[in-house]
């Protein structure tokens, strides 16, 4: 239990901006004396109570379950109610609070979440029952613990948008649905009650799934350990297993895998063809010729590595081990 802690001085620099009233965004400085374990949200509410009632933020449950108070704390996406002041002050000397990224600021720390919800809605986030397998009349569906386990941690998602805020692919590409939406999609794809997982995978494979940069910043930001980047990886695997390569992203992954299985190393020339097809090779020809001048060995392709037998054994073992969870 928290021992009777000495109060520390906590300097806050909080982003302030009201676009409807003009002016420029600025940081406002506040100082409080707080116990180190005090959540940042409690600090901000004390600022509202005692220093400045115009400071504006979203908050409700204060127990990390409603997802309202996600914001940037010293540049990282965090739930304010779930982040104590002490370690932040120890590491950064102060607490700089900004609104989440990738969502326009409505006022101070309150952002417009419409883009976030719109991308979520594009995932058809509801159960689509299979007309050929109706729900059992008058009783719950049977679901084994193993089937429940396939949801992984996705039911913990509180839609706080921390992941969305942390995601560089969201920033770069309006086509990318974002980590939360994809984790939600994954939850439906692995649901044994859902009848549309094939259609869901088909749709996502050509509409944004492969735009993930695999930086894992979403997983780092997620306060509920949903690990969205791992769910995106799972979706990619399920998509490829269900329908093979349908566009450059998945074909690249498959090509990569086949290259290693064949030679234990990459064949760059082949990979271009595997990813983009013949037309892709033609399109990339100029670049290829320039490269080949510098590294003529590329044209010959790589030598098969010595331990290839071991690599193939690994492939065989993995193939046997992995059950397709659909």
């Amino acid at each position: 239990m928290f021992a009777a802690e000495k109060l520390i001085t906590v300097p806050f620099d909080v982003y302030r901006y009201d676009p409807t009233r003009g002016g420029e965004p600025r940081y406002q400085h506040y100082e409080l004396r707080l116990a180190p374990h005090t959540p940042i949200l409690s600090g901000l509410l004390r600022i509202r109570d005692e220093l400045d009632p115009t400071l504006t933020l979203r908050y409700s449950c204060r127990s990390a379950i409603c997802g309202s108070c996600a914001m940037l704390v010293n540049s990282k996406s965090r739930l304010a109610c779930h982040t104590p002041v002490g370690p932040e002050v120890a590491e950064h000397g102060r607490i700089v609070v900004d609104p989440m990224r990738n969502q326009p600021v409505l006022r101070d720390l309150v952002v417009d979440q419409k883009p976030f919800w719109t991308r979520y809605e594009q995932m058809d986030p509801h159960l689509i029952p299979d007309p050929l397998r109706p729900m059992p009349e008058g009783r719950p569906t049977q679901m084994t613990p193993a089937q429940v386990d396939r949801f992984k941690e996705t039911p913990r998602c509180i839609a706080c948008a921390s992941c969305y805020s942390a995601c560089p692919a969201v920033e770069a590409d309006p086509e990318f649905p974002g980590p939360m939406a994809l984790a939600k999609l994954y939850r439906f794809v692995v649901d044994p009650r859902d009848g549309a997982h094939k259609a869901r995978l088909q749709k996502i494979q050509t509409s944004g799934l492969w735009l993930c940069l695999r930086c894992h910043l979403c997983t780092e930001a997620c306060p509920k350990d949903v690990r969205p980047s791992e769910r995106i990886r799972d979706l990619k695997e399920l998509a490829v297993r269900a329908q093979g390569g349908t566009e450059p992203g998945s074909r690249h992954a498959i090509g990569f895998m086949k290259n290693i299985e064949e030679a234990g190393t990459l064949n760059e020339l082949k990979l271009v063809r595997q990813t983009s097809g013949l037309s892709g090779m033609v399109a990339a020809a100029g670049q290829g010729i320039r490269l080949a001048r510098k590294k003529p060995e590329l044209l010959k392709g790589p030598k098969t590595i010595e331990g290839i037998a071991e690599v193939r054994k690994l492939y065989a073992a993995l193939e046997k081990d992995e059950e397709v969870p659909l």
Partner: peptide
């Protein structure tokens, strides 16, 4: 409860799947 389960609610399950 059964209706909510059919709507898609993810409940905890026993070893027998119920």
């Amino acid at each position: 409860v059964i209706e909510m389960e059919h709507f898609g609610t993810i409940f905890s399950r026993g070893d027998d799947g119920s």
